[in-house]
Design a protein around this nucleic acid. Structure first.
Lengths: 225, 225
DNA sequence: TTATTGTCTTTCGTCTACAGTCTACGGCGC
DNA sequence: GCGCCGTAGACTGTAGACGAAAGACAATAA
């Protein structure tokens, strides 16, 4: 046992910057999701490296990872291009998301206790507040946090991993039209929490499926609107 | 228009080896799935590089990719270790697999035409033949091909991508006990084909779910057996 | 005028070298 | 004899350099 008397939580953990490739990965993902790097754009390794102040190597490794996760397309001997989402792909992604989220809701209903439900209600309240304040970015972030919390309550790490990636890409496609579905979304969240609190797996599954299906429909309607 | 008179299909396409990192990736994945590299083993970059006759760089990139796909764990400043599957993780993986495969079966039932059904029956017949000949490796490969074909018929690329990765890892865990579930598995496949041919989405979903659940149960029974 | 070909620039793919960090082992003090 | 500290080795993380392939453009010939 340590006898230094240092308060354990207060130790600064000797903040080490962590692998450079990860920070480059985060930075690039941020640039892509914020549309600073537009779909179809050619990403030149040396440019990115110079811009970020690192060498090409970490940039390469970050691009590899972004490639396997579907954010960029890596054409051999030609380089990386920001992935261009198609209508078909967006639809398929939303289909998969519905699947994963619905299962997560079921598992959450099966496993969640009152602390978990309380956390969900807390997030929901904040989300409603953000919508009321017309804070679109905040509402989107809280929406993500809400769904992530349900994933956590589901207690399936593999499922959470997949859903995390799928959700992030869905959000990429969807953010531009998120405003439309502000309020109604949180009403549906309330119903979902109730189902989870009741430990009603069936109802939680159905509600989550309808919830994500509404999102999909709103996405498609954007096209024509 | 080309006026050389070359038969278009016969051009050998000048087989180029493709990026080195991909071949290293394939090689390592093969070594892992065949247990030549055992779970928990420390993978030293320079060793692998020397053994494969390439430099460290392509090896690094392959390891990165294997890391994001869950095959190896990349501990910072320490290197790569072959992932050690836990009971819990295997169970979660099987849960997700059930989800994805069931949805694929539903979509296949919704979209498949007679050529697709014929292809499935072809694969099924070969699989039964392999089981009869006690060809375990062949049966496992055909089983994978059968499920992959259903994925293809489902026509959802995103779903196929995820299921491909999940299935491959499930197979890694499961292969050692695959012998037990030889024959019964293909009987269930037959029923599944019938449901798809009838375009009965409901029945196809249920059958596939039961099918993969049987696999899961057989996996768990192995522990005690 | 059009198609072809040769050259040239750009960028990627790979290799080699160096610095930082973690682990293991041996010596020293208690 | 036991535990701690210092040192050495090994491996990874990062940087920089070289060779090769792909695309663009201009010059030339039909």
């Amino acid at each position: 046992m340590l006898s230094t008397g240092l308060p354990q939580g207060a130790v600064p953990k000797l903040e080490r910057p962590g692998p450079l490739r990860d920070r480059v990965y985060e930075a690039l993902l941020e640039l892509i999701t914020t549309r600073a790097l537009q779909p179809g754009q050619h990403l030149v390794e040396s440019e990115l490296a110079g811009h970020l102040g690192v060498s090409r190597q970490p940039v390469r490794e970050a691009l590899q990872r972004l490639n396997t996760e579907g954010w960029v397309d890596l054409r051999p001997a030609q380089g990386a291009f920001v992935h261009e989402p198609t209508e078909e792909e967006a639809d398929q992604l939303l289909t998969v998301r519905t699947l994963l989220e619905a299962e997560a809701a079921r598992l959450a209903a099966a496993h969640a206790g009152s602390p978990g439900v309380a956390a969900l209600e807390e997030l929901c309240a904040e989300g409603e507040k953000a919508v009321a304040a017309d804070d679109v970015d905040g509402a989107v972030a809280l929406n993500a946090a809400f769904h992530a919390k349900i994933m956590e309550l589901a207690g399936n790490a593999v499922l959470a991993e997949l859903a995390g990636q799928v959700d992030r890409r869905v959000r990429w496609y969807y953010t531009p039209v998120a405003r439309q579905r502000g309020k109604q979304s949180w009403v549906e969240h309330r119903g979902l929490i109730a189902a989870i609190a009741d430990r009603d797996e069936q109802r939680a599954t159905v509600l989550m499926r309808e919830h994500t299906e509404h999102t999909r429909r709103s996405y498609h309607e954007r096209q024509r609107g």
